[in-house]
């Protein structure tokens, strides 16, 4: 059995204008989870609960075997955390920050840090004040990575980076995973990044996890089928169709529980199957959110079987 590095069970947190509801998350050690959601969907609150910075009202959170928030100090010894709203001390240099972190984390790897300095094109003697946004993000990532943490928690790590820097950062994240004992949890609005590097995917919308699964299962479950119907034919009701678009003669089905038998069922009904297309994560995310917002009850029934 794989050990879980992050485990949320039934976590809720209420604020006056927003609440997180019954969040379940499971991230196996050695893998990378992409956490996708719109602005204000609850990504940052979830991450703060994960880090023990915000206390959940109910439910349990276990990170690297430590109960959060009670055991946060111990858990954070093995966590590298970078969030979008995190700043370094403007008046100090990057070199000072590196020394400071090194004095606290015994596993700090100076050779790796030097390596990252070169790769991220950062100058340690420069004060944080003088760095661009991208350089600050990379500096914070360097400080987290060179601790060699067992778990990296990154809130929007690639936001605001230029394409070259983004590629470097993704490469470093993947390089971390060459060690099977290390795990990454990252949130992003960039579904391309998530689709590319994550093993596990969780979608959050309006404070609820609306879908969470292994990425390959996830991408396999969703298909778009383009059909051509002869006049006066109606399609049978197929399970897992979340949206029927297109025109009446040329319908396009969006399906979240695809099975090759569905294609046969369409053909049996007299439809010509023009194509069965895989969907990108972005398309899946949008279809998922929209179908749930349109039919909140109907779709939530399928969630149980899907997330299992």
């Amino acid at each position: 059995m794989t050990h879980l590095s992050v485990h949320f069970t039934g976590v809720s947190k209420r604020y006056p204008h927003f609440s997180l509801d019954d969040i379940d998350l499971a991230l196996p050690t050695g893998s990378i989870m992409g956490f996708v959601g719109a602005n204000g969907a609850g990504k940052s609150t979830t991450i703060r609960i994960l880090m023990g910075l915000v206390h959940q009202d109910s439910g349990s959170v276990e990170v690297l075997g430590h109960a959060m928030p009670a055991d946060q100090a111990a858990a954070k010894r093995d966590i590298g955390f970078v969030s979008e709203d995190m700043r370094l001390y403007e008046a100090a240099t990057l070199a000072w920050h590196m020394k400071f972190i090194q004095s606290i984390f015994p596993r700090w790897d100076q050779r790796y840090a030097d390596n990252l300095l070169r790769r991220f094109d950062l100058k340690p003697q420069q004060k944080i004040k003088g760095l661009s946004h991208g350089q600050r993000v990379k500096a914070a990532l360097l400080l987290a990575l060179a601790r060699r943490p067992r778990l990296l928690v990154l809130d929007e790590p690639t936001t605001g980076l230029d394409p070259v820097a983004r590629r470097e950062v993704l490469a470093e994240l993947m390089a971390v995973l060459i060690d099977e004992q290390r795990t990454i949890f990252f949130s992003s609005q960039n579904t391309l990044d998530v689709e590319q590097i994550s093993d596990q995917i969780a979608f959050i919308d309006r404070g609820r996890i609306i879908d969470s699964a292994n990425k390959e299962i996830f991408l396999d479950r969703w298909r778009r089928i383009r059909l051509m119907l002869p006049p006066d034919t109606t399609l049978p009701r197929l399970p897992g169709v979340v949206e029927v678009g297109g025109s009446s003669r040329l319908p396009v089905l969006t399906i979240n529980q695809f099975d090759p038998a569905m294609v046969a069922a369409c053909q049996d009904a007299g439809a010509a199957v023009q194509s069965v297309d895989a969907m990108t994560l972005e398309e899946i995310f949008v279809a998922n959110v929209q179908s749930r917002r349109d039919h909140p009850v109907a779709v939530s029934e399928t969630t149980e079987s899907v997330t299992a």
Partner: peptide, 17 residues
């Protein structure tokens, strides 16, 4: 699997599949 995943910058699970 892991080495190829890192080299290609794609998830381990994709290469594994």
């Amino acid at each position: 699997i892991r080495a190829l995943a890192v080299a290609l910058r794609v998830s381990v699970i994709t290469v594994k599949r």
